[in-house]
Computed example of a mutant assay.
Amino acid sequence: MQQTKRHFISLSYKGTAYHGWQTQPNALAVQEVLEKALKVFFRTDVETLGCGRTDSGVHASQFFAHLDLPSEIEIVQEKFLKSINSLLPSDIAVSELFEVKNDSHARFDATLRAYQYHIHFKKNPFKTDTSWLIKDELDLPAMQKAASIIKEYEDFGAFCKSNADNFTNICHIQKSEWEVIQNGLIYHVSANRFLRNMVRAIVGTLVDVGKGKIPADAMHQIIQSQNRSVAGASVPACGLFLTQINYPYFNNL
């Protein structure tokens, strides 16, 4: 049996043209494009396993995957990065490839994941694919109050996509807050794990609070209901970014 060494690869991507990270039979995904480039460079089939999934159209400013390479392969970092990035399209960029212990796992070893959701208030052609345009006035203090309530809970079934195959709806939220930027807002949320479609559903509910459709305190009842139909609609994927993944054995801040 051929001996292999496990590596982590760090990358970022603009998700507009892709149906998420994970390879799919009838749609283009980031994983498929990356593995084809790795095959050309290493001249052998390379399988990757990502730190998680992202939905169609969602972006990642930081993403990790692990892969196993034959032990005899020597990697010159500068040469690898130059070559692999020339093989990849302009909307995917690799920043590092490094060896880890053979039992390291990009998905299961992650201790924290952080997302941002971007909103802008004035039409801007340069933000079409990376932010959600809202023309309504929003009550930011109410949205901030509702966002803070989220940190009081652990079961987020109310924000989970229907028929999702989660083994549990428990997530430990560390951050949930809004940041004011010029002509817009950014929602910051981090946790040990997230449910499928969870962040987009949370943002949709918080925006309903901001529009005055529901009071901020209603967030308690929505979360306690564990009923997806009670929460707000999922917001467009264009504004969502996976921004940070933490692991216990290296510092990637």
Score class of each variant (00 low, 15 high):
Y117V: 01
Q174T: 15
N183I: 12
V100C: 05
E99A: 13
K101I: 03
Q174L: 09
L185W: 05
E179T: 05
H105Q: 12
R196G: 04
E154R: 09
K175H: 13
F126Q: 08
H172P: 06
D129Q: 14
N163F: 15
A146L: 01
L112T: 14
S131H: 02
K122R: 14
S176M: 03
M143P: 00
A106V: 03
A201W: 09
D208E: 12
V180W: 12
A147T: 14
M198H: 06
P215F: 13
K122V: 10
T130S: 14
Q182W: 11
K122G: 00
V209E: 13
E152V: 13
S162N: 14
F108D: 10
H105K: 11
T168A: 08
K135E: 15
D109I: 08
W132Y: 15
D136E: 14
P215S: 13
Y187R: 01
L206Q: 04
F167H: 12
V199R: 03
E152C: 06
W132D: 09
S190N: 09
A146M: 05
L185K: 03
F108T: 11
I134S: 07
V203Q: 10
L206H: 06
A191S: 14
L185D: 00
L97M: 08
G210A: 04
N169C: 04
A110Y: 04
Q116H: 15
L206C: 02
F121R: 05
E179W: 00
E137R: 08
I119F: 03
G212I: 08
R113S: 06
D217T: 10
S104I: 00
H172S: 13
N192E: 04
S131R: 01
I149Q: 02
G210D: 06
G212W: 01
M219N: 09
S148M: 09
V207T: 03
I149T: 08
P141L: 12
D136W: 05
D217L: 09
V189C: 06
E99T: 11
Y115S: 01
L195I: 08
G210C: 05
D155F: 11
S148D: 14
N163V: 04
S162G: 11
K122Y: 12
I170W: 10
V199H: 01
W132I: 05
K145P: 04
F194P: 02
D208Q: 12
L97I: 11
F159S: 07
E179M: 03
L206N: 04
H188W: 10
K213Y: 11
N192T: 13
I202A: 01
I173Q: 02
V189M: 07
I119H: 00
E179R: 01
A147Y: 08
G184Y: 04
A216I: 15
A142H: 07
F194D: 10
D165M: 10
R113W: 03
H105C: 09
G210P: 00
H188E: 09
S190E: 11
K145E: 15
K135S: 12
F121W: 09
Y117C: 04
H220C: 06
K175R: 15
I181V: 13
M219V: 13
K101R: 13
K127P: 06
N124E: 07
A106C: 07
Q182T: 15
D155P: 07
I119A: 01
Y187Q: 02
A158S: 15
I214G: 01
E152W: 08
F108V: 05
I149M: 02
V203E: 12
